[in-house]
């Protein structure tokens, strides 16, 4: 049969081909071959592209460091720098002192995220005066909430087991009842921060202190075996994690370095009950004396200079204060500041 005189050419052709190839494996079609080559090429190019993108000569690299923000506010000329309130009711004291400073509303704006940092270092009862008075914390939280703060975080990087510190100090219950979120630090949530101090270069700072718009420092005045006193500046030990016990090798300068890194909006110093000996942990009520005083201010050094008096120390005896003054953090001469005593 010739092709010429056959009307069913395509069909016959196909039949003929099928007969020829019977039992033989079929070959790839042109379309399949194109597709195969395309797939292989894409895989090869993807390999080379990824390889180039990920190419690395130096596997060791420094961790990126963040810088802490300045949380202070500009204050009008003639504003009160420090207010000291005395009286048997601690909550009334902090109310009066805040009011004398112009009211908390001059410091906290609606919608802001505020972190309140009491000293919750130890698994101790409020009466033992190793931690900040929970009633004061509650009052400050309540005022922040009333002012429309978006978040009020209460936190501290405790020395003892943090859950027990917050429970036994009464601060967790009081702060929660007042509307705060109590943030308990675990093994995560610390951010590498550039300190750039004289002895501290970097530190692991707990996230609320990095994220907050405003920071209120709420230390308690108490005795400390190494530094003689722990108040506002020393309270910043509780914002960092890491292997921080090493700070005691250079405690005075470390405190000054941390204090230079932290620029709080406001500081509220609790001298309602003062631990006079066996600090910073205390334990015996015999070491605790009531002074029923709350001091509020914007100069932490001045507040600490004032607070040293409760511990029968002169500011010049406290090495960390001298370092803080040298770093330009504040003044020891609190009497030179615009001050109100109530």
């Amino acid at each position: 049969m010739t092709r010429k005189n056959n009307p069913d050419l395509p069909l016959a052709d196909a039949l003929q081909r099928a007969a020829d190839n019977a039992g033989k494996p079929r070959a790839y079609t042109r379309r399949e071959i194109t597709s195969k080559i395309a797939q292989t090429s894409v895989a090869a190019l993807a390999t080379l592209g990824l390889g180039t993108w990920l190419y690395d000569r130096e596997t060791a690299r420094a961790e990126p460091l963040i810088k802490m923000r300045d949380h202070r506010i500009a204050r009008p000329a003639g504003a009160v720098d420090m207010a000291i309130a005395r009286g048997p009711d601690a909550v009334e004291n902090v109310r009066k002192a805040l009011k004398a400073m112009g009211g908390l509303e001059t410091f906290i704006k609606p919608g802001e995220r505020v972190v309140v940092k009491p000293n919750v270092g130890w698994n101790r009862l409020p009466e033992q005066a190793a931690n900040t008075n929970p009633e004061l914390v509650a009052e400050v939280v309540r005022q922040c909430v009333t002012l429309g703060a978006k978040e009020v975080w209460v936190t501290d990087v405790s020395v003892n087991k943090v859950e027990q510190c917050f429970a036994r100090s009464g601060i967790e219950a009081a702060a929660k009842a007042a509307g705060a979120k109590v943030v308990l630090p675990g093994s995560t949530g610390f951010r590498a921060v550039a300190v750039g101090g004289r002895v501290l270069q970097t530190a692991e700072v707990f996230w609320p202190f990095v994220d907050a718009d405003k920071i209120i420092n709420m230390p308690i005045v108490k005795h400390h075996g190494l530094t003689n006193a722990t108040m506002s500046l020393k309270n910043w030990y509780g914002v960092i994690g890491g292997h921080r016990v090493r700070l005691h090798q250079e405690i005075d300068q470390s405190i000054a370095d941390l204090a230079a890194m932290m620029k709080p909006t406001l500081t509220i110093l609790d001298a309602t009950r003062v631990l006079l000996a066996n600090g910073p942990t205390g334990g015996s009520l015999d070491d605790v004396k009531r002074f029923d005083t709350v001091a509020v201010g914007v100069d932490e050094v001045a507040l600490d200079a004032f607070g040293a008096g409760f511990l029968n120390r002169s500011p010049s005896e406290l090495g960390f204060l001298a370092r803080a003054v040298a770093a330009g953090i504040g003044t020891l001469d609190y009497k030179s500041l615009k001050r109100v005593e109530l």
Binding site: V195, G197, V199, L200, Q201, T202, A203, E204, I240, G242, H243, R244, R246, L247, Q249, E250, S254, D257
Partner: peptide, 10 residues
Amino acid sequence: NRIMLTGGRV
């Protein structure tokens, strides 16, 4: 994993 404060990385 350190002892000394030297270097200031905490």
